[in-house]
Write a protein that binds this DNA or RNA. Structure first.
Lengths: 234, 234
DNA sequence: CATCATGATGTTGTACACAACTCAATAACA
DNA sequence: TGTTATTGAGTTGTGTACAACATCATGATG
């Protein structure tokens, strides 16, 4: 009866796969929070040292991040965080808008009690944020909110694709806004708008209208991008 | 004036990136044509030897194919071609159906003369196929047709995602049909239906109605899956 | 006879040394 | 002085040996 290691694998996901996912998530988060700025050069050896492994497993992660468009490895030069600009991302936003509606339509899943609770917790964090605006915390809440929304569809390919597109676009707000003079005011405005979105969606979820969630989300993504483009144009 | 290598890079994409893409495409095609059967175990060393490289660059390719759901590497066991079944792929098909329509709507690109010519050539290949049915050639034409359709949108993220979903699902027909007794007849039927789809779409393209292309494609993907599911159910 | 331990074998994962490559600084030259 | 080689440092890409792991056969043990 040697099932102890199996159980451990089940709960903790030991081994190579786990290390891989861990490093992957850390790097992805750093890129999206602009801890690594667009255009910044990363050194494989530094990353390897930080995570206590050799370059080999690090490179695996970098290959995946490159496939997702967050990095670009150039032989003899370095591994560079991809730069982004509002115009290039317009296409990705178009697609995200279209997909947002699908989450409510394709294989909607009746939210569990704890899922609803998680939404409420998030709403509270959001409210707290309006009293103490912080761009990083804003980005984090945004990320958590996205993952919660994503769990509302049982269509796994849709979840995967939405996630990928989300991580491709989420940096653009921080990057664009941080360079503008109205930064503080913009941040506060955006937080308030976001808070209303969360409130709207939580209301729709509590009623059980997942279709409405999709519509709300769709319009908010669309408007958010238009606002950004407008601010960036000036 | 040492710009010769630069020019070569531009046209032929020498170097690591090129090798990588080459191996990647070859393996992906083999998986989708069932040269590698679902469940089959691949050995990294065999692949390395075949392509004249070491395991290292091969593993890069395998990581990417694993991220796309075509392979699964298990430590100590092997690299296994993912098995697929009709029920699991239902979700992917749902998504493909939804995305098909977007190709005509998001950033439609006016087809060039040579693109239209390519469609006509394909239609001819398709016609020839009805006289000499061959499952592999059918799959190849299907693949080429997909890539042509995909070039009708300038939305690159959409192209990328559509491609990924296509390669996730395209094996299922060959796999399912090849196990059925009515295989020969099914193949011929399916080829004829496909030929009509191609004819319809070529007509829509020549008129310049890309929206119609999306609708035709959408309904054909949907029906194709329903037929498959129906046959598989019995 | 059933069951569990143990070792042999084969595979992917990792570490590390070296090759290929880029770029900038510097020297050579017209 | 301007321009072109060249050298050097620094980085990613590759090859290779070994570690970690899974599986199966074999035999010990109750």
């Amino acid at each position: 009866m040697n099932d102890e290691p199996v159980a451990a694998t089940e709960t903790e996901e030991r081994g190579a796969r786990h290390r891989f996912d861990r490093i992957y998530r850390v790097l992805r988060t750093r890129i999206c929070l602009l801890d690594y700025r667009p255009g910044q050069r990363l050194r494989e050896e530094d990353l390897a040292e930080e995570f206590g492994v050799s370059r080999t497993p690090v490179r695996r992660v970098l290959v995946k991040l490159e496939a997702e468009g967050l990095l670009r490895s150039v032989h003899g030069v370095g591994t560079i965080v991809t730069d982004i600009d509002v115009d290039e991302l317009a296409q990705v936003y178009q697609l995200r808008v279209a997909l947002a509606e699908l989450i409510g339509n394709l294989a909607p899943v009746e939210p569990e009690a704890d899922t609803i609770a998680a939404f409420r917790t998030l709403l509270a964090r959001c409210e707290a944020l309006t009293h103490d605006p912080d761009p990083r915390e804003f980005a984090r809440i945004n990320m958590d909110f996205f993952h919660l929304l994503n769990s509302l569809t049982a269509n796994e390919p849709l979840r995967e694709i939405s996630e990928r597109l989300y991580y491709q676009t989420t940096r653009i707000w921080l990057k664009t806004a941080s360079r503008l003079s109205r930064y503080e005011q913009m941040l506060l405005d955006e937080i308030r708008i976001f808070q209303r979105e969360v409130a709207d969606i939580v209301a729709a979820i509590e009623i059980g209208d997942l279709g409405a969630v999709g519509h709300i989300r769709r319009s908010h993504i669309s408007m958010s991008f238009i606002r950004l483009r407008h601010e960036a144009g000036r």
